[in-house]
Design a protein around this nucleic acid. Sequence first.
DNA 1: TCCGTAAGTCATCGAACGCTGACTTGAGTG
DNA 2: CACTCAAGTCAGCGTTCGATGACTTACGGA
Lengths: 195, 195
Amino acid sequence: MQKRDREATRARLLEAARLRFAREGYDATSVRDIARDSGVDATLIFRYFGSKKQLFDLATAADVPAGLLDGPQEELVARMVRTVVEHDWTAYGGEHPLVAMLRSSAHEDARRRIRDEVCATYVDALRDLAEGEDAELRAELLSAWMVGIGILRSVVATPALAGASAADLDPHVAAVATALLGRPMSGAVAPAGER
Amino acid sequence: MQKRDREATRARLLEAARLRFAREGYDATSVRDIARDSGVDATLIFRYFGSKKQLFDLATAADVPAGLLDGPQEELVARMVRTVVEHDWTAYGGEHPLVAMLRSSAHEDARRRIRDEVCATYVDALRDLAEGEDAELRAELLSAWMVGIGILRSVVATPALAGASAADLDPHVAAVATALLGRPMSGAVAPAGER
DNA sequence: TCCGTAAGTCATCGAACGCTGACTTGAGTG
DNA sequence: CACTCAAGTCAGCGTTCGATGACTTACGGA
C-alpha cells in the first residue's frame, strides 16, 4: 500500500466534499474546508477535479438506492418513504441528498439537477401507478410530500417527525398514498419472504 | 419631497435585501449586491442595520397572511395551501418566505427560525384539528406536505405543480387532509357570503 | 544506486468579502 | 447668508475566496 495514492486521496476529497456540500451548501463550503477534512493540500482539488464547481457536480451526483423500483407496486410509496427515513445517508450528512442539495438551490444548475432527479426517480414511477385524469399532478403531490417529510425531519427538525421511525409513519403513508393515487396502497414494506 | 430620505432609503435596502436573500440565500448575497439593487452605497447597510446578519434577520422576519386562522375549521388546510400557491410573495422572489429561507438553512439560526415559524403557524393550528392518538405527528406530516408543495412548485419547478392553480389542487387537498386528520376536510375555500 | 515521474506542498496571485472611519454634500433653520 | 447636522460617499482595512505555477518529496524500474 502506497502512502501516496492518487485514487485514495481523490476518493477522500470526494467524500469530504460530499459531506461539506450536503451539510453547508455550495457557497458556505470552501475548498480549504474540504482539503482540511481530507488532510491534504487544497491545491489538489484543482489538480484532480478542475474547479470547485466540477467537484460539486461530482460530489452531488445522483445516488439512487438499488431496488427502489423492485417489489410489489402497492409498496412503492412505502419503499420511497423508507429511503428518506431509514436509508443510511451519513455520507451526505444524514440527509437525503436531494434535501441536502436544496441548500445550494440558489444556483440554477443545482435546481435543474434536483428537478431532473426528482422527476426521473420519483414522479415517473408514481405517475405510472396513479390512475385517472391528472396522474402527473398527483404523482408530483406525492413526491412533494416525501420531499417535505425529508425537510421537516432533518432540516427543520420538527419535534415528532425528527424522531419518527418508518414504522410510525406506515399507517399514514398508506392513508395518503391511497387517497392520492386512488388505489389501495400499503404503508409497510413486507419482508422478502412474505411476497 | 426630499431627495435624501432616510426612511425611504432604508425601506429600499430592506426590500432589495428581502428579494436577494430569498432568491439566492444568505451566503450568495453580498451587501454590495443589495446596495447596487437599491442604488445606494453599501456602507449605508451597516449604518442602518448594523450588520449583514441583522439585515438578514429583519428582511426574513415572519410575515403571516392575515386571516389564515379565521373561517371554518374544515377549510383550514385549504386556506394554508392557498397561502403557498396563490398568495402574492413577489417581495420574496415569488416563493413562500419559508421556502426561500431554506436556501439559508446551512445556518443554525435560520433553521431555528424556520422551525419556530412552521410550528407556530402551521403545526399548532393543525394539531388542534387532528383527532386521535398521534395528532402531533399527523399535523407535522400535513405541514410537510405543504412545505413540499411549495418547494416542488417554485424551487424544483416540477412540470405539473409549477403551473397548477389552487383550484386544481382542491380535490387532492380535501382527500389528503381528510385522510391524515381523520375528519372531513374541504379542499376549497368558500366565499365569505356562503358561510 | 540512480533517476524519472508523479504525488503532494508552498508561496502567492487578484478579486471579493464584511466592515470602519474620515470625508463631502445638501436640506432646513435662524 | 451662514451655520448645523444628518445623509450619503470614498478609500481602504484585514480577511478569505478560488485558482495558478514553481517547487519538493518519494516510489519504482533500470
